[in-house]
């Protein structure tokens, strides 16, 4: 985590430009520019800027935006109310899509629709997410007028139905892309299970194919899929950056993009810090979930301790 913070800090400073530039405009004189640099602290030596940044971070103080003056943590909190529901809804929808389709593609891999699912998922992986977003907008918003094309209701979640309508297309966009790559993993995990000895044994012991698959197969197949899910959830959070831009959503991603354009270091550092934290937590949660599903991993951990 500390390494991530240091790398982040240095990389940001390597970008040419100056955060003070966001505060002044064409017509400003040298004295005004210097005053702006003093205000944001970009006139200090890099080492001093870094020490100040880490010291503040240790108090969990992410500072305030150079440009708007709003505390970073407050702004992130507000924007998470868009990004978190977006990510989680997309994640749940992706799983809901990928699980049945992936298993179907494995079980019926010799039928035409099994193959079709595989081909569609390969296509989905190859297509950039913003393009899918634009296509969905053109189809569902501009042509069919079913849902709004972009934006978020002014009253946010106070207007839950409107908020959900606004999120429908962005959620679908992420869910489609995510499901496409998940289907592959689910399919290959299912294939492993189908070809496994224990399933054959279960069948030999008299269970039907369906019963054996549900009882023994899914639990076994879930283990590798869960670790992938952890990674996918983290990458969904990052993918939200692009999707939020296409759909003009006031989330974490748009905050990050504007922050980078304006060299608003506190905002950029804050967003990256919080998202790193979330990614780590998700990885940890995926680990725990794996242990819950698979007793062998649990025993392993206990065995190691005694």
């Amino acid at each position: 985590m500390l390494i991530a913070i240091a790398v982040l800090f240095v990389l940001l400073r390597l970008l040419p430009g100056d955060p003070a530039n966001a505060l002044v405009s064409v017509g400003a004189d040298a004295a005004q520019i210097e005053a702006a640099r003093r205000q944001v602290g970009s006139d200090l030596p890099l080492a001093e800027q870094f020490v100040r940044f880490v010291a503040a971070l240790a108090r969990f103080d992410l500072g305030a935006s150079f440009v708007s003056g709003v505390p970073v943590i407050e702004e992130i909190g507000r924007r998470l109310t868009v990004t978190l529901p977006l990510t989680l809804l997309a994640f749940v929808s992706a799983i809901a899509l990928a699980l049945p389709l992936g298993i179907l593609a494995a079980v019926k891999r010799r039928r035409w629709y099994g193959g079709l699912i595989s081909i569609a998922s390969q296509l989905g992986i190859a297509v950039p997410v913003f393009w899918i977003g634009i296509l969905l907008v053109t189809l569902f918003a501009v042509q069919l007028r079913l849902v709004p094309s972009s934006g978020f209701p002014a009253r946010g979640w106070l207007d839950p139905l409107a908020a959900l309508r606004q999120l429908a297309l962005p959620v679908l966009t992420i869910a489609l892309v995510m499901a496409a790559s998940l289907i592959r993993y689910v399919r290959s995990a299912s294939l492993d299970v189908i070809g496994s000895d224990y399933l054959r044994t279960a069948r030999a012991l008299g269970s039907g194919y369906r019963e054996a698959l549900v009882r023994h197969g899914i639990r076994n197949g879930a283990v590798p899929v869960i670790s992938i899910l952890g990674i996918e959830l983290a990458s969904t959070l990052l993918g939200a950056v692009v999707v939020e831009r296409v759909f003009a959503l006031p989330g974490l991603g748009s905050m990050l993009l504007i922050g980078i354009e304006q060299r608003d270091y506190p905002n950029v550092q804050g967003v990256l810090f919080i998202s790193t934290l979330i990614v780590l937590l998700v990885g940890f949660a995926a680990d725990i979930a794996q242990r819950l599903v698979d007793p062998r991993l649990r025993d392993h951990a206990i065995g190691g301790r005694t």
Binding site: F91, G156, P160, V214, A222
Partner: peptide, 27 residues
Amino acid sequence: MFAFVGGARRSLSASLMLAAATLALIG
């Protein structure tokens, strides 16, 4: 399988809780 579906449910209810918390937050 059950653990898995349970996991999905948990994140769904988490997002509902989050939405509710958001409502309270905005005032």
